[in-house]
Design a binder for these strands. Structure first.
Length: 204
DNA sequence: CTCCCGATAT
DNA sequence: ATATCAGGAG
């Protein structure tokens, strides 16, 4: 496990989110849109969305049909457009237009679950957290980091096994590795720098 | 557990 | 043709 952490840190030294954003609000919106949607498409959508509605106030006052039209090429756009408007209204009304900095407050927002909250806290505010998305879940399983099926269990296993100061760089490294090498459908084990220490659990 | 649900890779 | 894409709510 210690060796794995060092390798991930060396391979992906800089914590990175491949979603374009310039402030916590934009990251929050991008994360909500990115559910079951490629980051490439999310970035196309957010570019237009942020141009049209730059602030929580703008998005809160926007007609939901207009939001839906802009994000229509994204999966589950009907749900997401409603959530984005409702969430923006709450930010304006209860948080002075700012994005809150606690897991409890974030997960109360419509469309914001534990994964979105943890990634936002860590990448927008630098707060140590583990965001368990589809990549972290898959790699934690294949690499034998966690036997848990649910995200919270995986989150706890990683927190116990990795020093707190490495939480962010580790989970973001897993995500980058999952996107580039250890892909869901066709993992490139032959070209994988972790090949020699990976048990490849469940990999055909 | 089901529903949401467009684009893309395989 | 279908699995998958930075999931969450009911």
């Amino acid at each position: 496990m210690k060796e794995l952490v060092e390798r991930i840190k060396k391979l992906y030294p800089e914590p990175t989110v491949e979603l374009n954003f310039s402030n916590p609000f934009e990251l929050l919106v991008a994360l909500i849109l990115s559910a079951r949607c490629t980051d490439k498409r999310t970035n196309i959508i957010t570019k237009e969305l942020f141009k049209r509605y730059p602030t929580p106030k703008d998005l809160a006052e926007a007609p939901v049909e207009e939001i839906d039209k802009i994000i229509s090429s994204c999966s589950m756009h009907n749900t997401k457009s409603k959530n984005l408007k409702a969430l923006s209204e709450i930010l304006v009304r209860d948080f002075n237009g700012e994005v809150p900095k606690s897991l409890e407050e974030l997960t109360k927002l419509p469309g914001v679950g534990r994964k979105t909250a943890n990634i936002l806290l860590s990448m927008a505010y630098g707060i140590p957290a583990i965001g368990v998305d589809t990549h972290v879940k898959r790699l934690a399983y294949r690499l034998g980091i966690s036997k848990s099926e649910n995200p919270e269990g995986i989150e706890e296993d990683i927190k116990k096994a990795v020093p707190k100061e490495d939480w962010i760089v580790f989970y973001t490294g897993l995500i980058l590795h999952g996107r580039r090498v250890c892909k869901a459908r066709k993992p490139n084990c032959d070209g994988c720098p972790l090949n020699d220490i990976c048990p490849k659990i469940g990999v055909k």
